[in-house]
Design a protein around this nucleic acid. Sequence first.
DNA 1: GTCTATACGCGGATAGAC
DNA 2: GTCTATCCGCGTATAGAC
Lengths: 252, 252
Amino acid sequence: MHDFSEPHTPTEAPATGLDPSAQPGAVERGAATRQALLDTAERLFAEHGYGATSLRRITAAADANLAAVHYHFGSKQDLFVALFRRRVEPVNRQRVERLERLIAASAPQAPPLEDVLDVLVRPMLALRDEPGGEHFVRLVGRLFAEPGDHLTALREEFDEVRSKFLPVLAAQLPHLDREQLALRMQFTIGSLANVLAQAHRSNGPTCFPPFTTTPERVADELVAYAAAGLRAPVRRTPPDAPAAPNDTEPLQ
Amino acid sequence: MHDFSEPHTPTEAPATGLDPSAQPGAVERGAATRQALLDTAERLFAEHGYGATSLRRITAAADANLAAVHYHFGSKQDLFVALFRRRVEPVNRQRVERLERLIAASAPQAPPLEDVLDVLVRPMLALRDEPGGEHFVRLVGRLFAEPGDHLTALREEFDEVRSKFLPVLAAQLPHLDREQLALRMQFTIGSLANVLAQAHRSNGPTCFPPFTTTPERVADELVAYAAAGLRAPVRRTPPDAPAAPNDTEPLQ
DNA sequence: GTCTATACGCGGATAGAC
DNA sequence: GTCTATCCGCGTATAGAC
């Protein structure tokens, strides 16, 4: 129902010192406010979710005025996009650069599957060790599960990553056709997303027993799991669908 | 910031015909309203997300009054829980029953890994073929990514499933310790959740090339992938962390 | 250029009439 | 059981102070 066609670009640049009416130090204060809003929103969005976090709470916690969000970013949505890009762009740049180094190192053969997966997975998991990153990874985990209307722009950030990694993976997985590879990569991304979304529960409460695992250890396990899954032989017949015809009754 | 400690249980039972002030046919109308609210909310939540779907839109589309939601369910949150339980309880009952049949059939050995995974995965994917189920599976996919505050009650629905499946899986995976098994099952659940969340995009737009896959085909692929991943040998050393020390600059 | 104050319409929730 | 009226907090927009 919203209209994001003209997303409002207010801070086209801190056009430093051109305007004689500007207060001394105004630019620095503006940058500090912007920063505080990004950091605070990142933490609160991760803890309570996007919808449950109001701009009033964010601005109060960041010692800023309610309207500061709209001045610096244009809308709540745009604030989210900004804090998201801030973290994701370096990660995706690392992924692509490291992949290209891998390709160069193993040329003319394609690089080993495990190495490619490692480069895909580790930079994102490593965010957990950056200040504030532990909040951010939960947001990433949730992104792919969100309904598609308003966050498509963010998902497009991953398009370059996908387009560069897919052919390299395909070269090591000749037993899969295009559709099978796409499906299995969807499994792999889901594994990563789920781990990211649950990363904050170091003493995991409901779903799985508590365990204390470093991001490095998680990356190791995920790479081993995904590589084996991607290499799995194509399955032919479902082994078991006993399905007594009426073991589901109609809805209440 | 919400308080869901006392969730309001209004419709303790359609206490049929006890109240002399009730209109004739009131009970049937009430049940029909309840049903319409569940079906409509399920569709709208799946299409636009929970937060972006207002009670006013739901009640308008279901030809009901705004206050009907609070009368029948107590709150928007409780409406979500109700429509969720309606679908998930039969699925989880199927899973447990089929697992017990598998155990009995292969006793005294543990049942084959692929069969156990098939029984875990297929009933949920099969919901796509039920009327309205194609909407519901998207909600399931999102559940595990949601922040933990208000939906813990729903996640507990899966506790019985987990406690019954984990030991059977462990019996087939003696090379994994408890922590490794928990982590790899988290990967597996993530794979399933991601597929469910994207299930509606039969012509997948941003993330993966379009493909038309039946739920049965997806279940086959997921079982093959997860079985291989779970069986993967434990990895020892990360193969590649070239990580030029400064390939990440500080945040903007 | 940055921030404050204030206003509008819509969201979920609730009380009480019918 | 159902509905109307109402409450308060939300995202958003804008006018004007510094």
